[in-house]
Simulated assay, not measured.
Amino acid sequence: MTNPAVPAPPPQSATAPSGRMLNEDEQALRAAFVALRSEISKAVVGQDSAVTGLIISLIAGGHTLLEGVPGVAKTLLVRTLATALDLKMTRIQFTPDLMPADVTGSLVWDSGKSAFEFRRGPVFTNLLLADEINRTPPKTQSSLLEAMEEHQVSVDGQSHRLDDPFMVIATQNPVEYEGTYPLPEAQLDRFLMKITLDLPPRDAEIAVVSKHQHGFNPLALTQAGITAVAGPEEIRTAREHAQRIDVQPAIIEYIVDLVRATRNSPSVRLGVSPRGATALLQASKVWAFLQGRGFVTPDDVKGVAVPVLAHRIGMKAEADLEGLTAQAIVEGILSQVPVPR
């Protein structure tokens, strides 16, 4: 697996050898999210696995960290996703001088009421694009922890609920580290997936340039024909259906064995936590749903294991010096841990 992202879903008519298949209502809902992929492809070319990963995270109720060099359509991908789902989107450019209140909001004196009033920050949205999140100090990074985990922010002892659905999509540049603050393990563990956007292959890059030659404007997505194919209600319903996907005890044991194996690797200083195991379970269930099945198979777990687990692994210094990556650790574990039959 060269790119830590999930593969593209199979056609809608995909079937499984045995087990419960989705009913008619579930298939209609699934079709909406298959159409979502097609809608996004009108603007974003050559990033199919990243699109799938974002859809899985959204249905699973998780958050996503996008990593890629400048110019591979990270921001365009998020903007197109918001347009195709009729969701509110807010973008925050993370900088060294950004303060926590710039994200969550703050108390402002209302002279008319002679009282302090809470002014909501940009975190009160559906899709929050945290652009270059590793360029802001840890104090500001940590302002997102409560929002990501509990879907609320607390200011002056008062809790304020966030919108539903709510998803943080953070970006970072993998090649420019000067002036950055690496995300701590606690922050990384809040992301359901970390997805790498690679440079597109030649044919995809030709398609991108050709789109611009024919007048494509990434700042005018509705003019490019992007329309909403689903919305907040479909997302909430899909989450309910995904929760009902069957998972056999042997699959749960397989997930736990994979996670525990990361802790026993001699190259790892910090293995995947139980939160990572539950994240792998949720992502596997959504992946099964998108494939038209009502049950999880070992291949579902394998399909999402790298983007769900790799960013949660802390490598030993000597392993980094040898060029060993967390992705390679997960891939090795997938080849070694016995698969349930």
Rank of each mutant, 00 (worst) to 15 (best):
P96W: 08
A250S: 14
P138K: 14
L197T: 10
L36W: 01
R37N: 00
A16K: 15
M193G: 00
G332Y: 10
E240L: 15
D86L: 08
S159T: 13
G271D: 11
L65D: 02
G68V: 06
V308I: 03
L199I: 13
I92F: 02
M1P: 05
G314M: 11
Y177A: 05
V229K: 04
R275E: 12
K285A: 06
P122M: 05
M148H: 05
A242C: 13
A82D: 00
D198E: 07
I55Q: 01
A283D: 08
Q158H: 13
T237I: 13
P200S: 07
S284N: 08
G105W: 00
I255K: 06
R91H: 08
Q336E: 15
R119N: 10
A250Y: 01
W287Q: 11
W287K: 10
F191S: 03
S210V: 14
K285P: 08
M1C: 05
I329Y: 05
A60I: 05
Q336F: 13
T136Y: 09
Q172D: 11
D97I: 12
S106P: 07
S49E: 08
Q93D: 09
N173R: 06
I252K: 14
S57M: 04
K194C: 04
L85W: 00
E67K: 13
N126C: 13
S41Q: 12
G157Y: 07
R30I: 05
S159W: 04
L199M: 15
E39F: 00
P11N: 13
D299R: 14
S143I: 04
A16V: 14
A230C: 02
L281T: 09
H311A: 09
L65T: 00
A220P: 05
V296G: 04
V69H: 10
P174Y: 06
I235R: 04
V308S: 00
T227F: 08
L290Q: 05
G105N: 07
G62V: 00
S38H: 12
T125R: 01
T83F: 02
L85D: 00
S143W: 05
Q243P: 11
N173K: 03
A261R: 09
E26P: 10
E39G: 07
S111G: 15
F216I: 06
G225R: 08
I226F: 06
G225Y: 11
L183A: 07
M148G: 01
V69D: 04
D299A: 10
Q172C: 10
